[in-house]
Simulated scan of single mutants.
Amino acid sequence: MPALSRRNAAVAALAALAITVQAPSQAWAGWTDQTDGKQAKGGKNGRTITVQTKVRTTVNGDAKSAATGNLSSADSNWTPPACWYEPAFSPKEIEKTVKAWRGFGDGVPLFEGVGEFVGDYLDSRYKEGKPYKNYNLDKQGRGMFWAAAVNPNRKDDPEASACDKQPFWVDEGETPDEPLAVTPRILAEYAYDELPVPETEIRMAPEGETKVNLPTWAWLDKAKFKPVSVTASIPGSGLSATTTAKPVALTIDPGTPDAETYPASGECPLDGDKIGRPRAKGTPADTEPPCGVRYLRSSGKGGAYQLKATLTWQIRWTSSDGDGGPLPEGVYGASQDVVVREVQAVNR
C-alpha cells in the first residue's frame, strides 16, 4: 500500500474516532459494572472518543406504556444538556481499548496498518507520558478516565460537539475542573428531557360536535394529568437527581380567529387538583364555562377546526447532595378536531 494512501486512510481512521465505546466500568469509589443506559451515537467533531452513557432513568407516576410525549422548554433560550463528561474507563480499559484499535484494518485493502497508526496516536497520550504514563495502571482502583457522553435525545444538536476532549483522568473523590462534568444538576436537566407527559387531549361538552355561538366546556381528566417524576442516576456513584413536572395551566387555541375563549386569555389555570370542569347536568346551554371556547362560525360541511390544547408544566428538581430548585417550565400540546355546526331553527 503506498505511503500516501496509508496516511490518508490513517487520517480517515482518526476522524472515525467519534465512536461509541461500550466500556464496563471497574470499581471506583463504589462504581459498579452497569452499562445499559441509552445509546449515545458519538461526538459531532469527528475526533473525540465518546461513550454510551451510564445514566439510568426511573419513571414514577404515569406508566411508560401510556401515550406520552416529551416536554419542550417554555424558555427558548434554554435546552437540556446535549453532552457531558462522565466516568467511563478504568486504566485497564483504556489499555484494552488501545490494543483493540491496533487490530483495526487488518486484512482490509486501503486500511492495512491503519490500526497501528491509531494505536500509536493513542499510546502517545495514554502510555508514553503525554500526558499519561502506562495508562495510569499504577492508579487502578483509585480513579477513572472520564469521557464525553452525548445525550441520546440531542445527538443531532450542534451543542453535542461541545464535549470535544479526549478521556481525561480524575482521581477518586476529586471533582473535575470541567464545566461539563456530570453533576446532580446535569442529571436533573437530563431527566427533564426524559419526562414522559401524557398526550394533551382535553374532554369537551358537548362531545362530538358543538354549535355556533354556544359555549363548549373543556377540562382535563385529573386522574391522568398528575405530577410525574424522573430520577436520573449513575449506578454506584451516589449521584442522582429527581426532576418533577406538575401541570399548572392549560392554554386553548381554537384553531380559528372566529372564536372566543374562556377565560379571554385562553389560559385555564389549575384549580385545586383540576383544570376546567365538566358541565353539570341541567346547566343552561348558554352558561359560560370556567374553561372552554365559543365558536362564532361553523366549520363548514365535512370540515373541522384544529383546536390545540397546550399544557404548561412547572418543573422542579432535588438531588442526592441536597441541591435543587426550579427549571424552566415545560410545554406540551396536541391538536384535535372540533366540528362546529349552525344551530338549526325549527319553523312552525
Rank of each mutant, 00 (worst) to 15 (best):
T175F: 07
A10Y: 02
L220T: 01
T175G: 08
F104P: 01
V212N: 03
R185P: 01
V21M: 11
E267H: 01
Q306S: 15
I252R: 00
A259I: 02
I94E: 04
A304M: 00
K224D: 03
E178V: 13
L180C: 05
E260R: 12
K64T: 11
K99S: 09
R7T: 13
T32G: 07
E342Y: 03
W313N: 01
A241W: 02
W169D: 09
A249S: 14
S335V: 11
A66Q: 12
R154G: 08
T97D: 10
Y126V: 03
T312E: 13
P179I: 06
W78V: 11
P109Q: 06
I19C: 12
D221F: 07
E207A: 13
P2D: 14
R316N: 14
A63H: 11
S335Q: 15
E174P: 00
Y305P: 10
Y132D: 04
A304K: 10
V339S: 05
A232V: 11
R7M: 10
N153A: 15
Y332W: 10
G333C: 02
E174K: 15
E112N: 15
E95S: 14
F89R: 08
P254G: 04
F111N: 10
D36T: 11
K96D: 06
G325C: 07
T32Y: 04
V55N: 02
L71S: 00
E174T: 11
P109V: 05
E342T: 01
V118L: 04
P290R: 01
W78S: 06
G208P: 12
R341Y: 05
E199N: 11
A3C: 07
D123G: 11
I202C: 05
C291G: 11
K155D: 15
S240I: 01
K274T: 13
G42S: 02
V11M: 12
A345N: 12
V343D: 12
D321M: 03
R294E: 13
V150Y: 00
S320D: 06
E128N: 14
L250T: 00
G37Q: 10
R279M: 14
P81Q: 06
G105Q: 00
T79D: 13
T50D: 11
Q26E: 13
V339P: 12
D258W: 01
K99W: 09
P206L: 00
T242C: 05
P87Y: 09
I186E: 04
G303Q: 01
P158C: 02
E342V: 09
G236W: 05
A82I: 02
P227K: 03
A15I: 00
G324L: 03
A13P: 07
S25G: 11
N77M: 04
E329N: 15
W146K: 03
V230G: 02
A10D: 14
P269V: 00
P167W: 13
T244K: 13
A259Q: 12
A218G: 00
D273F: 08
Y190D: 14
V59E: 01
A10L: 04
A148T: 13
N77C: 00
V98G: 06
A100M: 08
E194A: 14
F145I: 05
W169H: 01
W101K: 06
S319V: 04
V182F: 00
W28C: 15
V228T: 14
P263W: 02
W313S: 03
C291P: 12
Y132F: 13
C83E: 03
D286Y: 10
N134Q: 12
M144Y: 09
W28F: 09
P152M: 09
G282S: 06
